[in-house]
Simulated assay, not measured.
Amino acid sequence: MNRNKDHDSYIKYISVIDLIIKNSDEKNPITINQIQDLIYDKGYDFKIDFRIVKKFVENYNNYYEDTIIKTYKEGRNNYFYYENPNLDLMEAKAIIDLVYSSHFFTLKTKENYKKRMQDLFSIHNQAYFQKRLNLHVVKNENEQVFYQELEVITKAIKEKKKIRFEYQKPSLTFNEKHKLTELAPIDTVFSNNEYYLLCQGAKDPNTCIQYRLDYVKNVEIVKDSDVKFDDYQLNSFEKKLNNMTYMYGEGKIEVIELEFTPNVYSNMIDKFGKNIHPKKINENLYCVQVRHIINSTFYSWIIGFGGRIQIADNDVHKKQFRDFLMENFINKNNAD
């Protein structure tokens, strides 16, 4: 009998607390009658009253040493609501927006993050996390493999060990062999909507090298290694990281055709996603049509490849690019 009584008390406690957390917030408090209705909706037939709920709430708050579930009386009704002590609603909203803006995470992973974040708040606030625009770019498809690699990397950073890995950038060459790289991992960071591994340079210990994390494969810890960074090196690494900048500007989305050499194929995927379909012009040149915002940032990105990526289609795009060069480089240099 005692076991059944303890079990029933446990079910009552869990049900009441869970229903308050999931169905209330500061703007949407819940009454005893509403809690009772929700209990019936769950298929339970036990009854509650104010005394029981008050006791459950006091025990819950005492455990957390804080008033997590608040109560007040207005008129004849006693109201209860849950106040999330860990995360503000708009903080959570901003985190989800950051996750969705990343080109690294798969759509499934983004949806999982959103669902977990929604579950931290009442049903009344879950609509705040809905996304209206689908800006997802298909790149990484096997997040489980990635997380396995990330787990090894973070373990090596924690244990201050070097790692050995293959850097498998996308290539138009089949069966390309990838050499093993052995370096000291510094940290993992998001930059330019991508996820990077930062490693200490092998030739210059005061510089760091960035690797796209979804291209880092077959990671293993070098057990007989020992990694230490002094203050000067950490300062140098931070300066390098601060230079991983991304420029924003005005413009509109247009279809544009680009020609590029095979050695920048991985950069094309970084920029436009995995679902591009390059056409081979000759052994040294490919072309592809893409949709992108055409602005000064885009032109600067093209310039950065020193001719290995060029605008190939209509005269309008070529003229706009020439005008950008004249205004920002040629005329400016002549004026200087």
Results as ranks from 00 to 15, higher is better:
S9M: 05
Y10L: 11
I11E: 08
V16P: 05
I21D: 02
S24L: 04
T31S: 13
Q34N: 07
D37F: 02
D37T: 09
G43W: 00
Y44G: 05
F46H: 05
K47S: 11
I48A: 06
I48W: 01
V57C: 03
N62W: 00
E65F: 14
Y72H: 05
N77R: 01
N77C: 02
N78S: 06
Y81V: 02
E83N: 14
N84F: 10
N86M: 03
D88K: 11
Y100D: 02
S101R: 15
S102Y: 10
K110W: 13
E111Y: 10
N112L: 11
K115Y: 14
K115C: 02
F121D: 11
S122P: 14
N125E: 13
K131T: 12
R132K: 14
N134G: 12
V138M: 03
N140V: 04
V145K: 14
Y147Q: 13
K158L: 13
K158N: 15
E159C: 08
K161F: 08
I163F: 10
E166S: 08
P170Q: 10
F174C: 12
K179F: 07
K179I: 06
L180A: 01
T181W: 03
E182D: 04
P185G: 04
P185Y: 03
I186G: 04
I186S: 03
T188W: 03
Q200L: 12
Q200N: 03
G201M: 09
K203H: 07
D204N: 15
N206G: 07
R212L: 14
L213D: 06
Y215F: 13
V219K: 06
I221D: 07
S225D: 14
K228N: 02
Y232G: 05
Q233F: 15
Q233Y: 12
F237Y: 14
L241T: 09
T245R: 08
Y246V: 15
Y246S: 14
M247W: 04
E250H: 10
G251T: 09
E257K: 15
L258S: 10
I269F: 07
F272A: 08
K279T: 07
K280M: 15
K280V: 08
C287Q: 13
V290M: 01
V290I: 11
V290R: 08
R291E: 15
N295T: 01
N295V: 12
T297C: 14
T297E: 10
Y299K: 03
S300K: 14
S300A: 13
K318F: 01
K319H: 07
Q320F: 06
R322D: 13
D323Q: 04
E327Y: 03
N328L: 00
K332A: 07
N333F: 01
A335V: 02
D336P: 00
